[in-house]
């Protein structure tokens, strides 16, 4: 289970496949996820109609995503190690463009090495 941190409408997704890899995914790797839980924007943001309009994805959708945070420690080239409290991803379409237009929280800096600069520019903070 990975958290989805963009505003595509998904809150929690489950990874079903790591692409181009025969092992676990790291930050910047492309995965296929199934959306498990939708994000509800609270009562003040509108009724059920607006929720469905805001959500670009639904529960049960199979989507591509990019891992942006891992709870597993990752050692960088300079010897420092970074570890987040959760696993998180950002949904993308088949072409690699992020589905959401905004992102909620910090992402790993390894995205830059893997050419996900668009996600980096959307993120409020990268580490």
């Amino acid at each position: 289970m990975v958290n989805v941190i963009d505003n595509s409408g998904a809150a929690v997704a489950e990874c079903v496949k790591v692409l181009k890899m025969k092992r676990h995914a790291r930050i910047g790797d492309r995965i296929i996820v199934v959306v498990q839980k939708q994000r509800n924007f609270g009562p003040e943001s509108g009724g059920a109609v607006s929720v469905s309009a805001a959500n670009k994805v639904r529960r049960g959708d199979i989507r591509h995503a990019v891992v942006v945070r891992t709870a597993k420690k990752y050692q960088r080239k300079d010897g420092s190690v970074v570890k987040f409290d959760d696993n998180a991803c950002v949904l993308i379409n088949k072409g690699g463009e992020p589905i959401g237009s905004r992102m909620g929280s910090v992402v790993g800096r390894e995205l830059r090495d893997k050419r996900w600069s668009k996600i980096l520019s959307l993120a409020p903070m990268h580490l």
């Binding site: 010897g79 970074v82 409290d85 929280s105």
Partner: peptide, 24 residues
Amino acid sequence: TAILLRNQLTRIGVEMWFKVYSPN
């Protein structure tokens, strides 16, 4: 020698190890 620092950035817990004598 290395130190482990913990902080919360955008309400997400982040931990980092730093080598004390690293030239970086």
